[in-house]
């Protein structure tokens, strides 16, 4: 049985084969092309999901509420559902090209406006949490791998696994219950905070503590486990023996040789896992009523605001796709094995 080299977590990332002299431009264009295909798929899927799948959309909007035939017909007309499918699709595409995602059924404002308004809190939360989680994960993962089997390794891996096994929203609820009163439980700022920048910033930071901690706790574990296993893969590499033979100290071997090599697959994974971060953000924002895209998605879901839901889904998925294309390009820059000579 021992012949199998089980691909560990980092096998999810396929290190592109070394390309000798392949054009960077060509590579970038391929990646962008791939991204565009994915984007197109998302757009089509966004359209189809709410029109073709079983279950009448309008009926599902009224689920649990009384609906007269007139009301339903009116809703149908408003969503353009009475037209033929291809016309609806062309209509949808045309409006999408103009940044028009339709009108929110509940808020009675254009979906685009609503999404733009909610975009920045999410970017702030996800950005800060990702940065912290990546830093923490890489640091802990490196230390764990280097001292494999030590008490530090066992404890930090155990903690990471436990946090990873925990539903995000539950952790958030626990934090809320445990710190009751210390931190705000909802929103971005208090309404009575003075409008000057410093007070506002401090208040936002105050509001951000719990959501950030929650999100970090759930996502750093991935990075730690991936960094640990990808460094372990490098541990037996011959070039580390070379480095030791040169007379380098243990920490120099690690810092100069092992970590830079192990980092590359990890970096790609950070981006591949953005989708997971988004999932964490949806529930975290829900628990802490953080006014971002995640909460907007939840609200749209709760009140069956289909245009809004479709909008948030397309935007969230699209954002992740774009980030991944960027990551692929970044990878090209970082890894000389992939980079053109």
């Amino acid at each position: 049985m021992s012949d199998i080299i089980t691909p560990t977590e980092d096998a999810l990332v396929e290190v592109p084969p070394p390309a000798r002299g392949g054009g960077t431009l060509r590579y970038v264009l391929t990646k962008i092309g791939g991204g565009l295909v994915s984007l197109a798929l998302v757009i089509v899927l966004g359209f189809l999901l709410f029109r073709v799948l079983p279950g009448d959309v309008v009926q599902s909007m009224f689920r649990g509420r009384p609906a007269t035939p007139e009301l339903m017909a009116e809703a149908e007309a408003r969503l353009g559902l009475n037209k033929p499918l291809y016309e609806q699709f062309l209509d949808y595409l045309w409006r999408l090209l103009h940044g028009d995602l339709g009108e929110s059924y509940v808020f009675n404002v254009p979906v685009t406006d609503k999404i733009l308004e909610r975009l920045w809190p999410t970017v702030l939360l996800v950005g800060v949490a990702t940065l912290i989680a990546v830093g923490l994960g890489l640091w802990l993962g490196t230390r764990s791998a280097w001292r494999r089997g030590s008490r530090f390794d066992r404890i930090s891996t155990g903690v990471a696994l436990t946090l990873w096994s925990t539903p995000t929203f539950w952790l958030g609820m626990l934090l809320l219950a445990a710190t009751s009163g210390l931190f705000p439980t909802a929103g971005l700022v208090y309404s009575d905070t003075p409008p000057d920048f410093l007070s506002q910033a401090l208040d936002v930071a105050h509001h951000m503590v719990l959501p950030t901690v929650t999100l970090v706790a759930v996502i750093y574990a991935q990075y730690q486990l991936v960094m640990r296993s990808s460094l372990l893969e490098e541990m037996d590499a011959d070039y580390l023996t070379t480095a030791r033979a040169k007379g380098l100290r243990d920490d120099q071997v690690r810092r100069r040789h092992a970590v830079p090599n192990a980092l590359l697959p990890t970096v790609t994974l950070v981006f591949l896992h953005l989708g997971m971060v988004i999932a964490g953000a949806v529930t975290t924002e829900t628990v802490f009523s953080w006014p971002g895209l995640g909460l907007l998605t939840y609200d749209a879901l709760r009140v069956r605001d289909l245009p809004l839901l479709q909008g948030t889904i397309v935007v969230l998925a699209g954002a992740v796709i774009i980030m991944n294309v960027l990551a692929d390009v970044l990878y090209r820059v970082l890894d000389p094995r992939v980079r053109a000579s």
């Binding site: 070039y239 023996t241 030791r244 007379g247 094995r337």
Partner: peptide, 24 residues
């Protein structure tokens, strides 16, 4: 550590793997 490489150095088997792939 001081003796390594200054008194004795090594030419490793399989230079492909004995060199760090991401450094010049």
């Amino acid at each position: 550590r001081a003796v390594r490489w200054t008194t004795a150095s090594v030419v490793f088997q399989g230079a492909m793997h004995a060199l760090n792939p991401v450094r010049r």
